[in-house]
Amino acid sequence: MANPFAGQVEIVIDGRPYALKLTLGALAGLEQSLGNASLVDLVKRFEEGRFSAGDILSLLVAGLEGGGHDLRAEDLARAEISGGPLGAARIAAQLLARSFALPEGQG
């Protein structure tokens, strides 16, 4: 079960639940996978609804890595994600928001 207070988000892949989290190492890997774009660019794309399937996949893979899971992009691309593509987009957006938001009363 994912702990939202620790920045975790739950995803169900092929019927199995996983806790996703963006750790510093996972964020560094995500930055590398984005190429010329920055994390700020990624956040803006999600805020503006201009994100791509590649953005979603990269975020989910980084979250899986940060959560201690060894699923790769190739595995995730072939997997059944609960909620389908729209569910995956919602989970990716939640993960991004939880990773960069201060807990209630901390800002």
Rank of each mutant, 00 (worst) to 15 (best):
1 M>Y: 12
2 A>W: 00
3 N>H: 13
3 N>L: 04
4 P>H: 06
5 F>S: 10
8 Q>V: 02
9 V>H: 12
11 I>V: 06
12 V>L: 02
12 V>I: 07
12 V>N: 11
14 D>Q: 04
20 L>I: 00
22 L>K: 02
23 T>Y: 12
24 L>S: 05
24 L>N: 08
25 G>N: 14
25 G>Q: 11
26 A>R: 14
26 A>L: 04
27 L>S: 05
28 A>C: 02
28 A>P: 07
28 A>H: 06
29 G>T: 06
29 G>S: 08
30 L>D: 03
30 L>G: 03
33 S>L: 00
36 N>G: 15
38 S>A: 10
39 L>C: 11
39 L>Q: 10
40 V>T: 10
41 D>L: 05
42 L>P: 14
42 L>Y: 12
43 V>G: 15
44 K>S: 14
44 K>P: 11
47 E>L: 10
47 E>I: 02
47 E>W: 09
47 E>C: 05
49 G>V: 00
51 F>H: 15
52 S>P: 11
52 S>F: 06
54 G>T: 10
55 D>C: 05
56 I>R: 07
57 L>W: 13
58 S>N: 15
58 S>D: 14
59 L>G: 09
59 L>Y: 09
60 L>S: 11
61 V>D: 09
61 V>F: 07
62 A>P: 11
62 A>E: 12
63 G>C: 08
64 L>G: 09
68 G>C: 02
68 G>F: 01
68 G>M: 01
70 D>T: 14
70 D>W: 00
71 L>K: 08
75 D>I: 04
76 L>Y: 05
76 L>F: 04
82 S>T: 01
84 G>K: 15
88 A>W: 06
89 A>F: 01
90 R>S: 12
91 I>F: 03
92 A>C: 12
92 A>M: 08
95 L>S: 09
95 L>C: 09
95 L>T: 07
96 L>I: 03
97 A>V: 06
98 R>E: 07
102 L>W: 04
105 G>T: 07
106 Q>P: 05
